[in-house]
Amino acid sequence: MDLAKTESLDLPQAEPAKGGSVGAPRLTWMERAIVPAGVFLLLIGLPWLHPGYRLLSLAVSTGVNTIALCGLAILFGQAGIMSVGHAALMGVGAYAGAILARDLDMSFWAALPCAALLAAAVAGLVGLPSLRVGGHHFVIITFALCGLFTIVLTNGGAFTGAATGLDIAPIGTVFGVNFSKLQNLYLLAAAFVLASIGLMRLVMTSSYGRTLRSIRENETLAAALGVNVGLHKIVAFMISGAFAGVAGLVQVYFLQHISPDLYGAFPSVYIALMVMLGGPRMLLGPLMGAFIVTFLPEVLNLDPIDARIAYGVGLILVILLLPGGVMAGLAHLYLSCRRCVVRS
């Protein structure tokens, strides 16, 4: 169509919008940058603050989860597809790393693309038949994936180590950096976390992210406007799988021993919980979610049963009061405080 031919049409103005806007609060560029910058500085500088081995170890655990959560944030936060199968995809990365190290003498770095691609491939295989059904059904299928994965591992004989699991040697020294030192392993994990957050942001702000959001917002309309919804859903699932695979690889080199229980249904639910608590559409949402679940019981010294109750209550509160997660809640809090200050 050629609008160049049009004279401007004299249309009366459309009606003004009612009420306030829905969605992310409006912050200035500076305000948006300062918290992430501070967090990233803290992330990188943590070893130099002498946090102690216990904290550092828990920080690595948090980092591992954050990597996987960034992938889930792309799938759920952007495309609107919930999966409770991400622990299984982490397991694919972890077991791939362990088996490749054992059978093909592959190092961490060589195994890295393999873990990511293999996890993405598994996600693709699972997604192909199952993403065409509605969201609720898909969640159940991903839940079943974890159960299936655990069974396959437990009955995999010597190849998967069966129920006992697999061992792996540490990363060792690369380019003069000794990764057997916890501080260095932490920095490696932190680097991956930063890369994951960066990639996630890249997707969020790109036109691809907008396409995923259109699928989330109104799938029917998206298809009617030319979006290949089926393909994009599978690709989004595969991308999130790749993140999980990398997280699993970092995890296996951290724990140095893995077994099927680590990747069952329960851990998967925890991962979904983390992304919802933290805020699936916020830049620091994944990190916040992992942080809360790792450190809340630590700081409050919670019995695991009490911790689970706390998470359940927290989840309900988030769903009812803070749909954007804790990060969105903090941002709103800041905005209201800023308005108060401006007014006074």
């Binding site: 829905v22 959001r213 259109s214 917002e217 109104n218 029917t220 309309l221 009617a224």
Partner: peptide
Amino acid sequence: FQQAMSFPAL
């Protein structure tokens, strides 16, 4: 579409 369809949060 008959219903007023859009991508609401965008």
